[in-house]
Amino acid sequence: MPDPGLIMYEEEFKQIDAELHRLHQQANAKVTFLVDKNGQLISAVGETDNLDTTSLASLTAGNIAATGGMAKLLGEKDFSILFHEGERDNIHISLIGRIILVVIFDQRSSLGLVRLRVKKSVEILSQILQRILQKVDQAKAPTGSGGAPKEQAKSPFSEITEDDIEKLFG
């Protein structure tokens, strides 16, 4: 398969969450969130109570996919930054490998400040992402090449039965 499933472990999740909190504060943003390129929300921080983050995540990924398609037609690899300006709220989107960082902000902040703070966060988030990928690779490698991380060893999914699936549909 071309695109192995993303697996998020507790340790890296906390680091990502901390970085999103830091960015949220330093960029004076309303919301910061991280989405997988396939549209799965990874984490969201800030004023998310009245926000449909699941839909927002899916549309963000659709947006990145569509502009990525446009980029390829022009011979570009990707458009790594997108910015949408509204009357009250604005959205800044940046691509970090296979994940997408989104910052929503209003007049309490500015595009310049957001761009500056995002730049730093992109570096930190790329490092965390790198570590996750290494961990997943290690876990998938045959035994004897470094050992699987603890979480992988006790994967709960190996014991799923048809009964469990039946129950989902009540």
């Binding site: 472990y9 999740f13 396939n38």
Partner: peptide, 15 residues
């Protein structure tokens, strides 16, 4: 592909 979040204890799948 599926996204498994051990921290939030979630599996996300795309159909």
């Amino acid at each position: 592909m599926s996204f498994i979040n051990y921290s939030a204890r979630e599996i996300n799948c795309k159909i």
